[in-house]
Simulated assay, not measured.
Amino acid sequence: MARGRPRSFDREAGLDKAMRLFWRHGYEATSMRDLTTALGISAPSLYRAYGDKRTLFAEAVAAYDRVYGGFIDRALAEEPSARDVALRLFAEAPTRYTQRDLPSGCLVVSGDAGTHDPEVSRLLSGMRNGKVDRFAARIRADVKQGELSDDVDARALARFTMATLTGMAEAARDGTGRAELRRVAAVAARAWP
């Protein structure tokens, strides 16, 4: 009996599986065995396709940010004011962090929990701080244009907004439902100047 051609490995589908595994368990708690089992390939094949675990994690985080976490960058690009950005983020976050058929929460928020790998920690803290920096710049621009009061601390307001999103993501991971997250978002929206 002749052997058929071996099935080709779908790299993008494998990346999506790895991303969901890291999203659900975090970098540290996801083992190479977990990854090879989920992707249906051997460890040498995984190394050939993606490099080591840290390299695969970085690629998975980039894919996550593009597909699921990009709502922050889209709001910054599309909304006319920093206040509108914040209100949009608060409105969208409860749904984003509690989607059916996806892990709860946010990979960028919790993916480095418990890790001792400084590169993984730097990657995610850099992404989180970068979002605060971009939002603070947007707030400063609104202060300069008179959209917001001169006494607004742009950095603190940006950090408050992102910390609220982080808290909502962690609450979703802990099982908090969408309805309660929407109430949290409404409180945060009222706190905005």
Rank of each mutant, 00 (worst) to 15 (best):
G14C: 08
D65K: 06
R122I: 11
Y68W: 01
R134Q: 13
G14P: 02
A49L: 13
R74P: 03
A82S: 15
M1K: 10
N129W: 10
G40I: 07
L56H: 06
G4H: 08
F160H: 14
M168I: 09
G167D: 08
R96T: 00
C106Q: 04
L56V: 02
M168W: 00
E147H: 12
H116C: 14
A185C: 07
L15S: 03
R140L: 07
E147Y: 09
K131L: 14
G126A: 13
V61G: 05
R54G: 13
Y64P: 13
G130I: 02
T166E: 06
A77S: 09
A13E: 14
S42P: 10
K131W: 11
I72H: 01
P103R: 02
V143F: 04
M32G: 13
H25D: 15
A63F: 04
Y68R: 11
A13G: 14
E59W: 07
G175V: 06
R173Y: 02
A172N: 00
R83L: 14
K17I: 11
R134E: 03
A154I: 01
A186V: 01
A154M: 05
W23I: 00
G4D: 11
V184R: 03
G175K: 04
A62F: 02
T161Q: 02
D34H: 12
G111A: 03
R159A: 15
M32V: 12
A136F: 01
A179Q: 06
R122G: 15
A189Q: 10
F9A: 06
R5E: 14
L39M: 14
R100Y: 11
R173T: 11
R183P: 04
G105Y: 00
L76F: 02
G111P: 06
S125I: 12
D142M: 12
T98E: 00
M32A: 13
D16F: 02
F9N: 13
T36M: 04
D34K: 13
D52T: 10
D112C: 09
R74S: 07
R11M: 12
D151K: 02
V120A: 08
A63Q: 08
P103T: 06
L21R: 13
R3Q: 14
R138F: 02
A137I: 06
L148T: 03
E180F: 03
V132E: 07
D73R: 05
A91H: 11
K53G: 06
P80Q: 12
D153W: 08
R122H: 10
V132P: 09
A186F: 05
E170L: 10
S42N: 04
